[in-house]
Amino acid sequence: MQRFFIYLILFIAIFLLFGWYFSNITLYLVISLILAALLRPMTNQLNDFHLLGQHIPRWMAILVSYSSIVLLLVLLSFLFLPLINNQVIILSDLDLNTIYQEVRGPVSKIENFLFRYQLIESQPGYLFEELRSQLLETIKGIDFGAFISNVLNITSSLFIGLMAVLFITFFFLLENGLLRRNLLNLIPNPYFELSVATFTKVEKLLSNYLSGLLLQMLAIFSIASFGLTLVGVDYALTIGLFAAVANLIPYAGPILGASFGIIVGISTGDYTQNHELNFLLLKIISVFGVVQMTDNVFLQPMIFSKSVKAHPLEIFVVIFAGAKIAGVTGMIFAIPVYTIFRVSILEFYQGYKSYRIFKIK
């Protein structure tokens, strides 16, 4: 029995070491598992469908499932195209001389205030010229060749990662249950029943968690879009979609969503006086306040506490541990990974106390 637990600890240690050292491969596997879990019901339904008296081949069902995801992404991208076009028009109509004069006024007021209280000793206009020269020096110091090279490297990495995820997901869907069967084949017969129970529970909890996340995104999108439309903010659907996706990032996501809404509202709003701008900001902040309250009070307790059956304090610590290990990506995948290890350890601990197989010497 002691030997079994030593092997189990060694396996977990090797698994964690492998995941850390080959972090890219681990990330591709995790994303592929999630994508396969989302596409499996559709793929199974298509595979069971009869066409001219024959089942649709599974590989064809997978391709149709892929096509549905691509079509969904294309349709969602149409929400952002009008906003991007609007921002391009705004940038093309900018008058640099007007901006120069508008910026110079507030800077001159700050300079006069500092000079009045003898905090600086300089000629009028010195502070603005210094800021302008520093800005020009910063622009001149940018290595555009290195910038373009970095953009190309990032693009190629994303393309390679996308191809890897699609390839891995395809075989997960093609060989339904392949990973589970291979893992169970490695387990000795005395521990087979307990391992099956553990796998089943992990799959159920992760399925509940993914379903809860989809429900959370749909609820945030609906509330934000409806609220922003109600208060007269342009591109409400686009802002709501961005807020729903950004909310996948724990704690930082709501701030990103609200910030995006404020930026879009300011850049596309039609106002002539400061009080109109302030009222617009108040409306946007109020809508996202309602969204955040709904998320914190109703959605998150239902998703995190009930679906993965973990205490909110556990979730808080796990998320920040994930952020320390892998940044934003770690925050997003911290809860599913923690659920797998937590349930596995608890199930084997219960088995140690309850099953006779652990007491055989």
Results as ranks from 00 to 15, higher is better:
residue 271 Y to K: 08
residue 273 Q to Y: 06
residue 118 Q to T: 06
residue 285 I to Y: 02
residue 121 E to Q: 14
residue 29 L to A: 06
residue 346 L to F: 14
residue 45 Q to V: 12
residue 29 L to D: 00
residue 215 L to P: 04
residue 291 V to C: 08
residue 51 L to W: 15
residue 21 Y to I: 12
residue 51 L to G: 08
residue 221 F to W: 05
residue 181 R to N: 05
residue 313 L to M: 13
residue 222 S to D: 00
residue 145 G to H: 09
residue 172 F to D: 00
residue 285 I to V: 11
residue 301 P to S: 02
residue 274 N to G: 08
residue 286 S to T: 10
residue 269 G to N: 03
residue 237 L to T: 10
residue 210 L to V: 08
residue 62 I to M: 02
residue 71 L to R: 07
residue 155 T to V: 14
residue 189 N to P: 03
residue 214 L to V: 10
residue 146 A to V: 04
residue 6 I to P: 00
residue 218 L to Q: 05
residue 30 V to G: 00
residue 94 L to D: 01
residue 173 L to S: 01
residue 346 L to A: 11
residue 97 N to H: 15
residue 7 Y to C: 09
residue 131 L to R: 06
residue 224 A to C: 01
residue 322 G to H: 07
residue 48 D to S: 14
residue 83 L to T: 11
residue 108 S to T: 15
residue 225 S to V: 01
residue 60 M to N: 09
residue 14 I to P: 00
residue 353 K to W: 04
residue 360 I to Y: 14
residue 215 L to D: 02
residue 324 K to W: 07
residue 189 N to M: 14
residue 54 Q to Y: 11
residue 69 I to H: 02
residue 292 Q to E: 12
residue 72 L to N: 07
residue 28 Y to H: 10
residue 51 L to D: 02
residue 170 F to N: 01
residue 100 Y to P: 02
residue 234 D to H: 15
residue 55 H to S: 14
residue 64 V to A: 11
residue 219 A to S: 15
residue 212 G to C: 04
residue 171 F to N: 03
residue 118 Q to M: 11
residue 12 I to H: 07
residue 8 L to S: 05
residue 282 L to S: 12
residue 72 L to G: 06
residue 242 F to Q: 00
residue 2 Q to A: 12
residue 313 L to K: 08
residue 182 N to T: 12
residue 229 T to M: 07
residue 299 L to P: 00
residue 197 A to G: 09
residue 164 A to E: 05
residue 244 A to V: 03
residue 245 V to F: 13
residue 99 I to T: 03
residue 61 A to I: 02
residue 37 A to R: 12
residue 223 I to K: 04
residue 352 Y to M: 06
residue 183 L to M: 06
residue 295 D to A: 02
